[in-house]
Design a protein around this nucleic acid. Sequence first.
RNA 1: GGGAUCGUAGUUCAGUUGGUUAGAACGCCGGCCUGUCAAGCCGGAGGUCGCGAGUUCGAGUCUCGUCGGUCCCGCCA
Length: 582
Amino acid sequence: MFKRTHTCGELDRSFVDEIVKLNGWVNTVRLHGKIVFVDLRDRYGKTQLVFDENSFSEDFGKIKKLSIEDVISIKGFVNNRDDSSINPDMKTGNIEIIVSEFIILNESSPLPFVLSDRSSAEEQFRLKYRYLELRIEELQKNLMFRHDTYQATRDYLSKNNFLEIETPILMKSTPEGARDYLVPSRLHHGKFYALPQSPQIYKQILMISGYDRYFQIVKCFRDEDLRADRQPEFTQIDIEMSFVDEEDIFSNMEDLTRAIFSTVKGIELPNPFPRITYRDAMELYGSDKPDTRYDMKLIDLKLFTDKSEFNAFSSVESVRGFVVKTGAKYSRKFIDELTEELKKHKAKGLAWIKYQEGKFIGGISKFFSESLQVEIVEYLKINDGDILFMVGDSNDIVCKSLGKLRNLIAEKEGLANKNNYKPIWVTEFPMFDYDEENKRFIAMHHPFTAPREEDIDKLDNSPAMALSRGYDLTMNGHEIAGGSIRIHSPKIQKKIFSLLGLSHEQAVEKFGFLVEALQYGAPPHGGIAFGFDRLVMLLAGTENIRDVIAFPKTTSATSLMDESPNYVDGSQLDELGLSLKG
RNA sequence: GGGAUCGUAGUUCAGUUGGUUAGAACGCCGGCCUGUCAAGCCGGAGGUCGCGAGUUCGAGUCUCGUCGGUCCCGCCA
């Protein structure tokens, strides 16, 4: 092997006539008989090699055996290309290497698929041969974004006095939240470790231990069903701070987020980030992670529909809707598709009215008198050619389904520019969700989230009304971070456990060590965790979490490359004291 | 747990109403070729139509089941 003097991405005209040595993969071969062009590739770029029968010192026949993805090592000189043969699409397109000697370091078998682009094979094959797919520029770029994000994060936090501290991967299984991944214990048959859903408890204990600014870029594990933006193992930027309130968290985390976007993408985010309460987010955007890149806010229309003849809306709790500019062009078929989508979100239907040539047309327009039409047009500032969509139902269903519709329309109309980044804090979440099935309250954030000072009284009488000190940082319709000010009073912590239906014994059994720790001088503290993969997705401009993870799993939590999970030898089970059912 | 959708050559796809020998492009193999950059031209090989049943004289095509991928609902504090 010739030790490389340069990479394949760095040579230009300033190197002309220099003798250079390059290593890399054969990206393409263009064979012309007595002259052969090869694009040599490494992760820094591509450089054109020229094998000329006249200037090549060795057996020219050897070159004709070159095939795609062979690994080679070459020696040659940098040649200035004629104006007519410059390739403006290549960074190194002004030059080429006239090769005098070369070594094939390793031949490649014919490839299972062409490495030209991501669409050249189904994902199933690309995941099986992930090591080949990772050679494609798009994925290399994504992993570089990821690297830059790690570094920007560590740089900012370290400079601001946060300590990076590792917490255990083998821990105790805790109730609430997601299903745990379990690890059987060899030394303690019948006992199991759990992989952390997050280092939540450890980071709170670190606060109690006095490490008042902690962070960790850490893998978390949740055994739940997957989605395009969800993997069974994923990465968080986990952060916790002592002697702080919401404002300290917000300002520090905004600075961190701005630092990341500025260094990784060269984008300056607003200062400060806007905020919205959970309630306003749900009522105006129909989502707890509002995409504020476009308007189309949900508007209460109950007063108007009650004056109409449309009886389906007269008995419902809530009627809301929003206007889509130029939406009158939508076909019946398209509106039907939207309706089907809304039914997934429990809406019974989608009411619509087109406004054309000064009057309501189609849909439920006949139920609205002329004077009522004028009122509505004025109130909503409807223009000719617009469409009004409405849903009537319980307020919860109305908001959530319209929120979904809002996103669908934005996608259809191209309103969501992925180079436009709109962060917004969501605050004042309720403490609890009520689980109708099990007739009990469930922590909306997690059981260590503090209630608002003024809502502590409500815990006794109307816990459903109590708001928490939890917050989410959202951007472009994604939750990129979530956290809260924690409970540091053992008394309130016990009350929350009891509201969650955990008996004193259960709470002590599951979280006793934390409750105990709270008694020994716990400082007021709070924190947040960023979904690192989703953050990188946003930075890389992709909608798929697998695009930003080197070795991702499928939506059924398998790895097609190494075929995990898999069976184990019976002797391994014996050692663990396990036997399989059936 | 539920819904939708996809599975045909190494890969991406086409394949009519169920009907003779399942096609194309790229890749692969062989040949020609001195300026290409998705090189070009000529020729060739390559198929358990995911798997298993069923309907039928006859199934890539229809039915049921099953396996796998993707997307969504539930779920994911």
